[in-house]
C-alpha cells in the first residue's frame, strides 16, 4: 500500500464516521423528547454532514478516479464503508443516543486536535474547522450525561444500561493497521494509542461526575477497518442511497 492509498482509506474512515452518525442523528428529527432537543440533534447531524462532505470530497480527490463526495456516499456498498461500528448502532432511547454521541464526540475531539496539526494541509484544515463543532458536541452530550446519570433513578438506570451495551463497540475506535503505520510515519495521522489515554481519562471524569460506572473492558467488537459491519449498516444505506440509486440523474 502506498501513501496515497493509505490517505484515501484514512479520509474515508473519518468521512464515513461523520456521514453515518449524521444520518443516525437525522432520524431523530420530529421525534426527540423536546422540541429544543429536536433542533439540537438536527444541528449536530448537519455539522456532521458538513464534515462528511469535506472529508469525502477530499477522499475522492486523493483516490484520483474522479469520484465526487456524492459518488462515495451514495454509490459504495456496505463492505466499502470504513466507519466504526459504534456510529451505526440504532438510536435506541434518548439516553442511548446521548451515550453514543458522548463516546464518539470525545474520541473525535482528541483525534481532531491532533489532526489539526497534521502535515497534510487539507486534513489539518478540515480538522481545525470541525473542531469548533465537535467541542460543542462534547459539551452538549456531556451535559446530558450528567443530567441523565445524576438525574432520576429511571434516567440513571437507562444511561447505565446503554453505556454497558455500547461499551464493547469502543475498543474498535482505537484499532490501527497498515494505513495508520504509513500515515503516522509521514506525520499525517494521529497515534490512536495516545488518543485512547486522553479519551479514557475524559470519559472517566464525566462518568464519575454523572454517578455512572465505567464498564469493564471485556470482549470488544471489531470489523470496520476491513469493512465488516453490524447488521444495521445495510439498512441505513438502503434508506440513504435509495433515491440516488433509483434516480441517478435526480437534482434538488
Amino acid at each position: 500500500m502506498n501513501q496515497q492509498e493509505a490517505l484515501y482509506q484514512y479520509t474515508l474512515r473519518l468521512g464515513d464516521n461523520a456521514l453515518i452518525l449524521g444520518h443516525r442523528l437525522s432520524e431523530w428529527t420530529s421525534k426527540a423528547p423536546l422540541l429544543e432537543e429536536d433542533l439540537a440533534l438536527g444541528n449536530l447531524a448537519l455539522d456532521l454532514l458538513g464534515q462528511a462532505n469535506s472529508l469525502l470530497e477530499y477522499a475522492g480527490k486523493t483516490e484520483g478516479k474522479g469520484r465526487s463526495q456524492d459518488d462515495l456516499a451514495y454509490k459504495r456498498a456496505e463492505r466499502e464503508f470504513l466507519n466504526n461500528l459504534l456510529v451505526e448502532l440504532p438510536n435506541g432511547d434518548f439516553g442511548f443516543t446521548i451515550v453514543r454521541q458522548f463516546l464518539y464526540s470525545t474520541f473525535a475531539l482528541f483525534l481532531y486536535e491532533e489532526l489539526s496539526k497534521s502535515k497534510d494541509e487539507q486534513i489539518a484544515a478540515i480538522a481545525a474547522k470541525s473542531l469548533k463543532e465537535i467541542k460543542y458536541h462534547v459539551r452538549h452530550s456531556s451535559d446530558w450525561m450528567l443530567r441523565l446519570g445524576d438525574g432520576t433513578e429511571e434516567s440513571h438506570n437507562r444511561v447505565q444500561k446503554s453505556l454497558n451495551d455500547i461499551w464493547m463497540y469502543t475498543g474498535e475506535l482505537f484499532e490501527m493497521n497498515e494505513v495508520d503505520a504509513i500515515l503516522i510515519k509521514a506525520g499525517i495521522a494521529a497515534d490512536l494509542n495516545a488518543i485512547k489515554q486522553k479519551w479514557s481519562s475524559k470519559i472517566e471524569e464525566v462518568l464519575s461526575q454523572a454517578t455512572l460506572k465505567r464498564p469493564q473492558d471485556a470482549f470488544m467488537q471489531t470489523g470496520s477497518r476491513k469493512g465488516i459491519h453490524t447488521e444495521y449498516l445495510g439498512f441505513i444505506l438502503a434508506e440513504m442511497q435509495y433515491l440516488p440509486r433509483a434516480y441517478p440523474t435526480a437534482k434538488w
Binding site: 423536546l34 422540541l35 429544543e36 432537543e37 433542533l39 439540537a40 444541528n43 459539551r139 452538549h140 451535559d143 446530558w144 443530567r147
Partner: peptide, 20 residues
C-alpha cells in the same frame, strides 16, 4: 422563548434554536 431544565441547557437550547 424555550423550555429547558436548567441554565446551561437553556443557553445551549437558545443557541440551537435561535442562532442557527
Amino acid at each position: 422563548s424555550l423550555h429547558a431544565s436548567d441554565k446551561e441547557l437553556a443557553i445551549q437550547a437558545a443557541r440551537d434554536t435561535y442562532t442557527r
